[in-house]
C-alpha cells in the first residue's frame, strides 16, 4: 500500500515536471489521431447529434412522423400538464433512491460478511452473483409470480396456516413502485458485492494489524477506516447503478407493466410508450430531453465533486 502522504509528496515535489508530463501525454501521434477519427465521428454524430435532434423534434408538433413545424415549447407545456409524467418522475426519484441505496448497503454488507472469512466463500459469491446472469425481463417475470397475491408468496404463506398474511404490494397503486426496487436490488446486489469485495481485498492487511494492536472494535474499523478508503469503489458503484436506474425500462415492463393504472410508471417507459405506441413523437422527445436534463442535474455535481477531490488529492 503506497502511503498517501508519500503520493502527494511525489507529485507536488516537481509540479513543473508533472505539468509537462501531462501535456505530453495529451499530444498523441498523428496516426493515433487518424485512428480515433471514426470513433469520434460516430460518437459526435450518433450521440451528441441525436441529442440535438431529439431536442429539435421536441420543439415541433410531430406526431407519427417527424415534421419540422415549430411550436416553441408547447410540447413541454403538455408534458408538464401530464399527471402520468409527474408520477413517472416521482417514481424515478423513489426508485433511484431505494435501488441505489439498497444495492450499496446490501452489496457492502454482503461483501463484508464474505470478507470476514466465511466458509464456502466461492459458493456464496456464485449464489449472489447468479441473478445477474438473468435479464431484467426474466427477473421481472419471476418476481411478478412471486409477488402475485393469488399464486405467489402471499398464497404460499396463507396455505401454511397464517391466513391473515398480506403481501400484495404489486397490486396496490401506493406500493407497487417498491416492488421494482425489490426486484432490482435482488438482481444487481451481486455485482455491487463483487465490486466491494474487490475493494476490500485491496486494503492493506497492515491496517487491520494496526487496528488490532490499538484495540479498535471491528465495526469501527469498517465504519471509520475502511469505508473512507473505499471511496472510489462507492463512486463506481453509484455511477453504474445510476445508469441502470435512468434507463430502467425492461424491468417495469415485465414486472408491473407500469400498473396498477400508471402508478409504477418510469420516465423511460413513458417516452417509449408515447413515441412508439401513441404516435406522439414530439411529446416523447420532450420527455426524453427533460429526463436527460434531470440526469445531468443530479449526477453531474456528484461526478464533478468526486473528480475534483481525486485531482486535488493527487495534484496539490
Amino acid at each position: 500500500m503506497p502511503d498517501p502522504a508519500q503520493d502527494v509528496l511525489h507529485y507536488s515535489a516537481t509540479p513543473q515536471d508533472a505539468h509537462q508530463k501531462g501535456r505530453r501525454r495529451w499530444r498523441p501521434q498523428w496516426t493515433a489521431r487518424m485512428a480515433l477519427i471514426p470513433a469520434m465521428a460516430i460518437t459526435i454524430f450518433c450521440f451528441y447529434g441525436f441529442i440535438i435532434w431529439t431536442f429539435v423534434i421536441s420543439l415541433t408538433r410531430s406526431r407519427l412522423l417527424p415534421v419540422y413545424k415549430f411550436t416553441g415549447f408547447d410540447q413541454y407545456g403538455r408534458l408538464f400538464a401530464n399527471e402520468r409524467w409527474w408520477t413517472a418522475m416521482q417514481n424515478l426519484a423513489i426508485h433511484g433512491f431505494l435501488f441505489i441505496g439498497g444495492c450499496i448497503v446490501f452489496g457492502y454488507l454482503l461483501a463484508i460478511l464474505i470478507d470476514r472469512g466465511v466458509k464456502a466463500e466461492g459458493l456464496f459469491r456464485t449464489v449472489f452473483m447468479l441473478p445477474l446472469s438473468m435479464s431484467f425481463i426474466v427477473t421481472g417475470v419471476i418476481w411478478q409470480w412471486v409477488m402475485n397475491p393469488g399464486l405467489g408468496l402471499q398464497e404460499a404463506v396463507r396455505a401454511l396456516g397464517w391466513a391473515g398474511f398480506e403481501f400484495n404490494w404489486i397490486v396496490r397503486p401506493d406500493r407497487s413502485i417498491y416492488t421494482l426496487a425489490i426486484a432490482g436490488i435482488w438482481q444487481q446486489v451481486g455485482l455491487c458485492m463483487a465490486l466491494f469485495l474487490a475493494g476490500l481485498r485491496n486494503i492493506d492487511p497492515n491496517i487491520w494489524k494496526a487496528a488490532r494492536v490499538d484495540g479498535i472494535p471491528v465495526w469501527r474499523v469498517y465504519l471509520h477506516i475502511i469505508t473512507p478508503m473505499m471511496r472510489t469503489v462507492f463512486f463506481t458503484v453509484f455511477i453504474l447503478m445510476s445508469a441502470i436506474v435512468m434507463k430502467a425500462f425492461d424491468l417495469v415492463v415485465a414486472l408491473t407493466g407500469g400498473g396498477p393504472g400508471f402508478s409504477s410508471d418510469l420516465p423511460a417507459r413513458f417516452v417509449v410508450d408515447h413515441i412508439l405506441n401513441r404516435q406522439e413523437l414530439g411529446l416523447g422527445a420532450a420527455g426524453a430531453f427533460v429526463l436527460l436534463c434531470t440526469v445531468i442535474a443530479v449526477i453531474a455535481p456528484y461526478i464533478y465533486f468526486e473528480l475534483q477531490k481525486e485531482r486535488s488529492g493527487r495534484g496539490h
Binding site: G261, F262, H274, E280
Partner: peptide
C-alpha cells in the same frame, strides 16, 4: 392516438 392513450391512462388511474 394521443386522445386514445390519454383515455386509457385516466380510466386506468381512476
Amino acid at each position: 392516438s394521443a386522445v386514445s392513450g390519454a383515455i386509457d391512462d385516466s380510466i386506468s388511474n381512476f
